[in-house]
């Protein structure tokens, strides 16, 4: 059985996922992904007739049991400085990040 996730596909996924892997880790992860896909292929053998809808939640949510949504109201948070203090780099209540790359559209 040929590998579905080739090094090229893998590198593309890694780029999309904004990850960085060293070569040893990449080899392990890619092998595991291909193994997992073999397990996932079992799904293809299941007969699914046309009227089987997708379930995104096991328990049905009816109007009766769905909580009413809150009003969309502004509420003050007591400690914004505490939130900002968690940022790896901040200055004068701004979170600092490296340069954001710009692409000029043609």
């Amino acid at each position: 059985m040929s590998e579905a996730i080739t090094p090229e596909v893998f590198n593309h996924l890694v780029e999309l996922a904004a990850l960085a892997l060293d070569p040893q880790e990449a080899e392990y992860v890619r092998k595991q992904l291909n193994n997992q896909l073999k397990a996932i292929h079992e799904l293809e053998a299941i007969p699914l007739e046309g009227d089987i809808a997708a379930t995104s939640h096991g328990v049905p949510y009816t109007v009766q049991i769905s909580p009413a949504l809150r009003e969309d109201e502004w509420q003050p948070y007591p400690n914004p400085q505490g939130i900002l203090a968690q940022a790896p780099d901040s200055s004068d209540s701004y979170i600092v990040v490296p340069d954001i790359p710009h692409t000029t559209l043609e």
């Binding site: 392990y28 997992q36 990040v97 954001i100």
Partner: peptide, 20 residues
Amino acid sequence: DLRAMYRQSRGQGFGAQPKL
């Protein structure tokens, strides 16, 4: 740049299972 920071931070911060 920001994208490189994302990649390095996530690459170093996540272990193998989250990456998988």
